[in-house]
Structures are given as structure tokens and as C-alpha cells.
Design a protein around this nucleic acid. Structure first.
Length: 111
DNA sequence: AAGTTGACTATTT
DNA sequence: AAAATAGCCAACT
């Protein structure tokens, strides 16, 4: 029997992230909540951190609750990379590098 | 087994 | 407004 639905929250997180449409962003807490673990926002980041290069997961569409690209202590170059990918999808950053979540946050109920 | 870490978030200074 | 504190919890040492 193959599993139609993942039991692990980690895999579920990845599936949720894959649902984010281009031109939209979601927060870590949002992904965690949609994965049934509203307190595991940090785990979302940990999962993305271990994501292999070339993954089909749109990791760049995940930002923190303030609408900015989270600083990562290890791959600082990825931060810039993330902004480029988002801008390529039409996401606009203001002068402070902040995304307007009211405008760009993904609403799973709408699509 | 017990302590540390961190791509988080909300609250308080 | 910006920085520090507190709460959280899976993964790692």
C-alpha cells in the first residue's frame, strides 16, 4: 500500500509549500499552521534549509511574518537569490526590502 | 539522556 | 522604531 497522504509533518510542509502559486508568498507560520503544526514555524525553515539544490519545492516563496527574507546564518548568498526569484515572479519589494503581505500573501482558500 | 541550535513569532522594553 | 525577551519544538550533539 502506498501512502496517499504523508504522515510526517515535514513532508506535509513540503507539499503545502508546493501549493504556493507563482507571484505569491507564504510565511513560515502559515506553512506550519497549514501542516497542522502551528507552533512549528522554525521547523519549516529547518526543512527548507536541508532542501537539496534543484528541488521542485518553491522555497523562495516562503518568507517570515514581517514580509522580509529571513537572514540565514549559513547561505547568505541564497537571500539575494530568493529576492531575485520573487521579483522575477512579479513580487515587489519596497525600499526596505519588505514585501507587502496584505497584497502578496497566499490565501489557500482563494487559490 | 540532557543540553544546544535555529531560513520563527509574539510580546515587552 | 528598534532591540531584547520569552515561548516554542524538532533535529542535532
Amino acid at each position: 500500500m502506498n501512502k496517499a497522504e504523508p504522515e510526517n509533518a515535514t513532508e506535509l510542509m513540503l507539499l503545502v509549500i508546493k501549493q504556493i502559486p507563482a507571484g505569491r508568498v507564504a510565511t513560515y507560520g502559515q506553512i506550519a499552521s497549514l501542516s497542522g503544526k502551528p507552533k512549528n514555524a522554525r521547523q519549516v525553515g529547518a526543512t527548507l534549509r536541508d532542501l537539496p539544490t534543484g528541488s521542485d519545492v518553491p522555497w523562495h516563496r516562503v518568507v517570515n511574518a514581517r514580509g522580509i527574507v529571513s537572514e540565514r546564518n549559513h547561505r547568505p548568498d541564497c537571500e539575494q537569490r530568493q529576492k531575485e526569484l520573487l521579483e522575477a515572479e512579479g513580487i515587489v519589494f519596497d525600499d526596505n526590502g519588505v514585501i507587502d503581505l496584505v497584497r502578496y500573501r497566499w490565501d489557500p482558500n482563494v487559490g
